[in-house]
Design a protein around this nucleic acid. Structure first.
Length: 267
DNA sequence: CCATGTACCTGAAGGC
DNA sequence: TGCCTTCAGGTACATG
């Protein structure tokens, strides 16, 4: 479910609500969710800072790092009371302030790690797609030599992190690039256009607080509105916003892929 | 290096 | 209504 804009929205809310708070107690309702390093304990640890790399949420605690990945259906929601008994509740953290951070996850793919150092989880995660240090030149270096399809390359979180199925389809449409174009066939100009398209797509989605299609909610239980601005995602057979012809859906990397055969040409 | 298949899981939606 | 199949925004790993 959540990609960079959804995770960024959640981090901003958690940062505003939980920075400086201390974990008083926690409970695990589905064992595989909680991946805890040997001898580590979150209790009595303060949340010093919150940040994000790609789709990973990073909570710097007093003497450890807690990292959350929501995968497909994970939700982090703060309630004033325990929501014990909810069928999708996998973990909760009670804070000294009285706030209770709930982790819901119907499909159980999500993970919450507690480790000594963030690298233990993030070592193989590539540069964040919105990082100010990422430039057109470094983006070209990351994707330019690959012979794989551009969509597959953009899905690979070891190169560039944060993009998922929705925002890749949206970015490629904005850039006028066919998702099956081999990455090393793209011209320098096309790569620059793609970089700007990715930035514009993510930027707009962050401003809209993310895309809510089925599960994604903000930490207060609110919804994003970016689903109202999607240009191609899940719009197969509907008219292209640029040329008016029917959009197409194919499978790339076994993922549903939406694009316009007329506006996005294969190089 | 690249592509493909499978596993992890549940629930919603569509076909009949 | 109900049963069956397919699909879903993510990632890791195993195999050609």
């Amino acid at each position: 479910m959540p990609e960079l804009p959804e995770v960024e929205t959640i981090v901003r809310e958690l940062r505003a609500g939980l920075t400086g708070d201390m974990i008083r107690n926690y409970r695990v309702f589905w064992g595989r969710t909680w991946v805890c390093g040997n001898g580590l304990d979150p209790v009595n640890q303060r949340i010093n800072t919150l940040s994000r790399k790609g789709k990973y949420i990073i909570l710097n605690l007093s003497t450890a790092v807690m990292i959350v990945h929501l995968r497909m259906t994970g939700q982090l929601i703060v309630h004033a009371h325990r929501d014990i008994g909810h069928p999708h509740l996998r973990m909760l953290f009670e804070m000294n302030s009285g706030k209770i951070l709930h982790f819901y996850d119907s499909r159980k793919f999500g993970r919450i790690y507690l480790v000594d150092h963030a690298d233990q989880v993030l070592e193989r995660v590539g540069a964040d797609a919105m990082s100010p240090e990422l430039t057109v030149a470094s983006f070209q270096a990351l994707i330019g030599k690959s012979r794989g399809k551009i969509k597959s390359v953009l899905l690979d979180q070891r190169r560039l992190s944060g993009l998922g199925n929705i925002y890749i389809d949206e970015s490629l449409f904005r850039a006028g690039i066919h998702p099956e174009t081999p990455a090393d066939h793209l011209t320098i100009e096309q790569t620059a256009v793609l970089f700007e398209a990715i930035r514009a797509t993510l930027d707009a989605a962050i401003r809209n607080l993310g895309t809510t299609i089925s599960d994604y909610k903000t930490t207060g239980g609110g919804f994003g509105t970016n689903q109202n601005s999607l240009l191609v995602y899940r719009r197969e057979d509907q008219p292209c916003m640029k040329c008016g012809k029917a959009l197409t859906k194919i499978r790339v990397n076994n993922r549903g892929t939406h694009f316009c055969r007329h506006c996005q040409t294969l190089v």
